[in-house]
Amino acid sequence: MVTPEVRFLAAEKIPTLLKRLGERYRVFAPVKVSETTVLFQEYREGVQIVLDRQTTAPAKEIIFPQTERLLSYTYRKDPEDPQKIELQVEEAPQSAPRTIIFGARPCDARGFRVFDSVFTAGPYEDPYYSSRRQQTTIVTIFCTQPQNTCFCTSVGTGPTDTEGSDLVLTPITEGYLAEAITEKGKELLQDEAFVSAQERVEEAQRAKEGIKLESELDLEGIPQRLMELFSTDFWERVSAKCISCGACTYLCPTCYCFNITDEAAGLEGERVRTWDSCMFYQYTLEASGHNPRPTKAERYRNRVGHKFSYHPINYEGMIGCCGCGRCIKSCPVSLDIRQVLREAKAYG
């Protein structure tokens, strides 16, 4: 018998489902950690799962951790010849455990698609990211209540976008309609928590149709437009408030820039990669002291330019922003990237 690709998942069954899945996978779900904060955490019995709002931080670090070891090394003195030093270098394992991200949003999935275009498409592939990505199943919830900072529909995704997800859930009465998008998604539907959907399919259809988020930004021609503005004072003006804190990049599902540093402990140590941010002065600072992006104007120009100009030019039109609005919500000086793009269109 072929497993149907559409099933019903009762809300009350979710804890037992996650517990069972936890026996075979690492399972991450949005967990309430304070009155105002919901974060993806590894599921444990008894935590409070929150599925009706966007998480405070995106799912990115589950596949692209904030810090990870790439290599380890050991220097050894040759006992026969103390002048001679031997070096051994080992790669960190690239075998990831099977993982489920339960309760992602279409913008989370889109974030990973942006990462995929850089990390897995070649010519050089990132083996650490790739292995984790391959081993991860993304279960996405459609957004029945987009927030006023959400603008996913403006950047080519949307609250019911299935791309990049393996299984999608439409919120309906007492639970969710579950639809498998990929084989990995189908595999999950085999769990007994998923039952026949029957007449609920129609309700889900209506629910999906009821989800409305009008595109609010006209990004037509914006890649070229931003290039035209490159040498103008536009960037100085729009970035005047920025305090270069980097919050926008750390909470961004599509920001992937990283640093590579060595951590030594005596004769051995590790080479690690950590998230970095183009909003920091040090990011492009050269050993000579020269800095091609000395002020926040150039740095802000790079952040917006990378997402809305360079990335779409390099990757067949794919905008490097998923419209999640986190940079808008988290910016201490209320810089709104939507407003900057609108002004860019009108400038000059």
């Binding site: 990390f119 490159f230 820039c257 970095d276 492009t284 091609p292």
Partner: peptide, 10 residues
């Protein structure tokens, strides 16, 4: 070409 550091435009 992965870490994003050295770009000049595209």
């Amino acid at each position: 070409g992965l870490c994003g550091r050295c770009n000049i435009g595209t």
